[in-house]
Amino acid sequence: MNHQRRQVLKGAGAAGAVGVAMAAGLLRPTAVYAAPWNQAGFEARSLADVLKSINGAGAAESGQITVKAPDIAENGAVVPVEVISAIPGTESIAIVGEKNNLPLIAQFDLMNGAEGFVSTRIKLGSTSNVRAVVKAGGKMYTAAKEVKVTIGGCGG
């Protein structure tokens, strides 16, 4: 049974490689509509791999990004998060729960007048930084806010 589990994991790794190729633009379809799902990023378990998948590894800390979230979340299953980027030309906003089993939560590509603003509700498994990674004018920026979680929302 364990052996089978290994094989499943290996299979996921191979699929991940395709995702990386996609992220690198090798397999990207020409249409802007519905970007290919970042499989490598969404299946990555480590923060480093997630940041790599969204090109956020060398992102500069920016005071122009505001991550609004509660200081303390009683229920980690529903944590309201709002990201506001005042950086001109904000093209995309990614939200990362740094200590989640699967840290990459969402990536929003914004265009045609969409402002540097998204608001949603996320799950946090434990007390963690909620990190926003913003792409603006082809450059990467980041900011984070710590949320203390009393009851985790990512498992059983």
Partner: peptide
């Protein structure tokens, strides 16, 4: 298209 999001 104004928003194109990928979620996990």
């Amino acid at each position: 298209t104004v928003l194109d999001a990928q979620w996990g």
